[in-house]
Design a protein around this nucleic acid. Sequence first.
DNA 1: GTGACGATTTAAAACGTTTGCAATTTTCCG
DNA 2: CGGAAAATTGCAAACGTTTTAAATCGTCAC
Lengths: 347, 347
Amino acid sequence: MPTRVTTLKELAASLDLSITTVSRALAGHEQIALKTRERVAQAARQAGYVPNTAARTLVSGRSGFVGLVLPVRGPNLVDSFLGEFVTGLGEGLVSHGADLILATAALGHSELSVLRHVVESGRADGVVVTRIAEVDERLAYLRERGFPFVAHGRLLDSDFAYNWLDTDGAHAFGEAFDMLYDLGHRHFGLVTISEPMTFRHLRQDGLAAAIGRRGDPSVRLDVATAPRFDRGARIQAINRMLQGPDRPTAVIALFDELALTVMEEAARAGLTVPRDLSIIGFDNVVASAYAPPGLTTFDASIRQCAREIADMLLTVIAERPAAPLTRLIRPTLVPRASHGPAPQTRS
Amino acid sequence: MPTRVTTLKELAASLDLSITTVSRALAGHEQIALKTRERVAQAARQAGYVPNTAARTLVSGRSGFVGLVLPVRGPNLVDSFLGEFVTGLGEGLVSHGADLILATAALGHSELSVLRHVVESGRADGVVVTRIAEVDERLAYLRERGFPFVAHGRLLDSDFAYNWLDTDGAHAFGEAFDMLYDLGHRHFGLVTISEPMTFRHLRQDGLAAAIGRRGDPSVRLDVATAPRFDRGARIQAINRMLQGPDRPTAVIALFDELALTVMEEAARAGLTVPRDLSIIGFDNVVASAYAPPGLTTFDASIRQCAREIADMLLTVIAERPAAPLTRLIRPTLVPRASHGPAPQTRS
DNA sequence: GTGACGATTTAAAACGTTTGCAATTTTCCG
DNA sequence: CGGAAAATTGCAAACGTTTTAAATCGTCAC
């Protein structure tokens, strides 16, 4: 291995050039003679010179980093969301030479305070914000500060313009309804959460809109709601819905984790899926393929979305476009074996 | 929101103090009058002052970052390893005020080159290295450079001393064998991969050692090997092993992903688990709980391990201990329904 | 009132890079 | 060969912080 050269000064000395010239040569400035540029590039390569990030950041104001504040999560994460998301971000960033900073919110510190720290310490040129809440103080802060960001998810408040990418949950839920309706289902169940997340509303509204479009008064919709992380309450709510002869013949869950619980509880209640009950989820987590009989769901291709978010953010950082960048991704149906024709009416 | 003060100079001016004094006051130096320290702290807080990371890094040589080079992964990640790992790292780092840098290797760039870049650009004070290969150039590089790191996994070559944390796969595989042996199994199958990863050897050796300890010549072991990411070859190898009347009655898989494939293929071949075939995995991925009848496996508690790795690394960075830090974590058996007594002999 | 000592505070250098502007060298033309 | 223009290179400041060494202030004993 060649001797390491750590600074521009050393490299310049070894080439008998000024620091300025070497810096410019490496940056590829036209004003430096081509011959010199090549000589410098060659020397830098074989000396293993790597510019110091801190110094570069300090003077240029650009860190080459994109920040992500880790969403605070419960003890058991049952999905690979985070892994796929950071993988996708990484893939999107690397082609532009950027890297990712992951900041964690300590117990007792709000996510916002961590975000503020990341932004104001100059660690990052832009940030990605996930899991948008109905009233999201992070977005308000970022907008006020004029700091580049892209959100994964939308606000309901549409006159707050900003850059976002979202999966079209409303469309997916409409699609799910239409498919089930065409299979003869008329009595539906929706399993949802009580937290004020925007995607909840968007998906529910999509479902409601699809129901409305049919204009069929015989369609019924029961709703079961439970807090996101309270498994006990969730199971209770689901059982209440599944109980009795007048239960839905098809259940749509806000996301797979809920759908999988429905499948478990249905099995426990002696119901056969999909003969007695159709179930459709959203997210396409890995377990949904393994849980019998295989959960029909929608794939949101997190990794691909994350890659696009990275691209969008880099564009925002570089070009500061006047109009916000927005992108709505249509999730694709993954038909497996948890849905089927409505059972014969019991009347 | 109060007006933002961005630099120490501004803060100093507003307090009518020198930059030096303010810097020292914020750092809590004893030599600054207590009254002044309090006054400065108060002003900094309400002005929302956040020190610039780049400037601090440049002069102090410490970035407050820990680096992780994202392992290059196939298109379909079926586990939540990465998510749990970065979550754990984040949790471990945040209590010491450190953050995580995720660097991705671009197509065509080796993981080593990315690592070198992270190290030599001064972005990070230390790095975490995962998925140790039998001959791992990353470890050789880091050692030669004397750069702080902790590896998640061991080398086989024991006279290469360094800091590591590993899950005791050898012990787990011994435990699995003992349990199955006591259930009457004598004919075993091992499903493994062909890549030169150290954990493969450690687990296989643990199994072999446990077999040796029994000293029972009637014990047989078949081995099926396939490349890590070649699903077709894997299925072929597994079917070859499961085929014919003289097949193993118990299969131990190197990790859950393989075990889940064994379960699928067993079902396809008309075998009932665990009546006809016992299966044990390793990792406790989420899907293993959902795949019928429930995979017996070992939980390596990735998140907890990652947290400890973070702690170790911060210790290494701060104290540069002479002797390497090492830590062997014993995975816990998660007994589910994929193992049982050996079937009656077919002879 | 003076000198000295401890308690506080400050000036200035340094970290490694980028960049505006000036200096130097080369090239070209008459 | 002289001079101006063009091409190339270099000087020095700046980014915001930490830190060494030195300056200032107040206090106290004599």
